[in-house]
Design a protein around this nucleic acid. Structure first.
Lengths: 241, 241
DNA sequence: TCAAAAGTGTTCCTTCTACACCCATGT
DNA sequence: ACATGGGTGTAGAAGGAACACTTTTGA
């Protein structure tokens, strides 16, 4: 990778993405860990090329980490405090990794690039977690799904960004009916209910929930799913796209 | 004013503001007209200083045109298409104003600054229109309130920005109860109803509207307002801040 | 035939809508 | 007194919550 400041990026704008997945009755967020000493976790982020729509940039950033195109995306907020830069984080990174991050000339340029004040555009994304094979990029030591309640401590304001993304998801859900993007192709009503209960962190009454969802008229009923359990087989549904 | 590119602005980021006012049962938007030949209207816009929060920038831009601080502001969307630049507009401006916009050296720098691709952060703002004395800045020929349905043709995508702002206002209104920012300190229930009818472009039933608004529990009832008309005097209300 | 879970129907209650009614005001 | 517009109460409709009932499945 060339020096970042030489690449054709727009200055001082970053994209931060919060990719939500759903598994084992938990909302999860994909978080890479940086390949440096010191345990640094950071949301999948990146910059915008001069010739690129911001939405394309967000798609690209997520495609690089998931291998998936056409991820469901929503822009939810811009984080634009003047104090918003990564100097503190970078200084600590350098302090803990003196061998990797020497004082060479081009490193200084990278430092200058990264420590600028950045205005970050926040996107959240929803994906069928089973479709994702998380991909490390060159700076990652690892990349993992973390349950919302077990998120690692992240750099800068990334924790608040996740929180804001969750709020946005909750308030978008009724209108956009986008939660189904977190489920596989087909699913049972019980799975939908558990998903909603997870997102809103509250229980729903089974029978009323079923009516409420079916009244949305966005699901198509398929064949029954025989699980082998000694009870009535539930219908499978799929989301009418 | 110095050359823009020499000022301490963040590159390629602009703030576009849609300032709503309310008067004569109409929603109005404050739109300056540029002091050049050719009838160019543009939303109040500006750039972000390096040491400035984006919210501060939006406040500053509106304060410069209205003289008012503490305007009610909501960030509503980022416009970030790669094709989003003002080259077409600027070329026409220069073509029509050759005497003002010669080919001097520093003009070229201005040209280069302005024709960059810009990512614009959209804010809408709500204000008591009677408090505003619109202020031209150095580039304005005029600055006027235009009713939503009588907006002049604006440059670039500014018309779509207004449209998006209006959508955002409508969808925020229930949750944020921010419409009262468009009214004076005190107002009657009828005025509130007319405002809502204007914003949503649909009628409300008087008696039910009154109950609905009072149930919000955000208004304080004051003394009656005697208009001199031969009918019961309505109460005045003010917004519990 | 039983337990467990899924699907449907029914009752009850809250909320919303339409409208009747009364109240205040100046002529 | 009465015309006009403002404020409140109420009956009916609609929608949501709670729960009873039926169906399906494998043991």
């Amino acid at each position: 990778m060339n020096n970042l400041s030489e690449q054709n990026y727009i200055q001082q704008i970053s994209i931060d993405t919060v990719l939500f997945g759903y598994e084992e009755k938990q909302l999860k967020v994909l978080v890479p860990k940086l390949d440096f000493k010191g345990d640094f976790w950071a949301l999948p982020s990146g910059f915008v090329y001069q010739g690129e729509d911001i939405e394309q940039a967000a798609e690209r950033i997520l495609r690089d980490r998931t291998g998936i195109s056409n991820i469901y995306l929503e822009q939810f907020r811009v984080f634009g405090k003047a104090s918003r830069n990564s100097m503190e984080f970078l200084d600590r990174l350098i302090e803990l990794n003196p061998e990797k991050l020497g004082e060479k000339r081009h490193k200084q340029q990278e430092y200058d690039w990264f420590t600028q004040r950045f205005i970050s555009i926040g996107y959240y994304a929803l994906v069928d977690i089973s479709k994702v094979v998380p991909q490390k990029n060159t700076l990652d030591e690892s990349i993992e799904w973390y349950a919302l309640h077990e998120l690692p401590v992240m750099i800068m304001d990334h924790r608040q960004i996740v929180e804001a993304a969750l709020q946005a998801l909750r308030s978008d859900l009724d209108e956009k009916q986008n939660a189904f993007n977190l489920l596989p192709e087909t699913f049972t009503m019980k799975e939908v209910q558990e998903l909603y209960e997870t997102i809103f962190d509250k229980p729903f009454v089974r029978t009323n929930f079923q009516k409420m969802i079916l009244d949305l008229d966005v699901l198509e009923r398929l064949e029954k799913k025989f699980t082998g359990a000694a009870n009535k087989a539930p219908y499978l549904y799929k989301f009418k796209k």
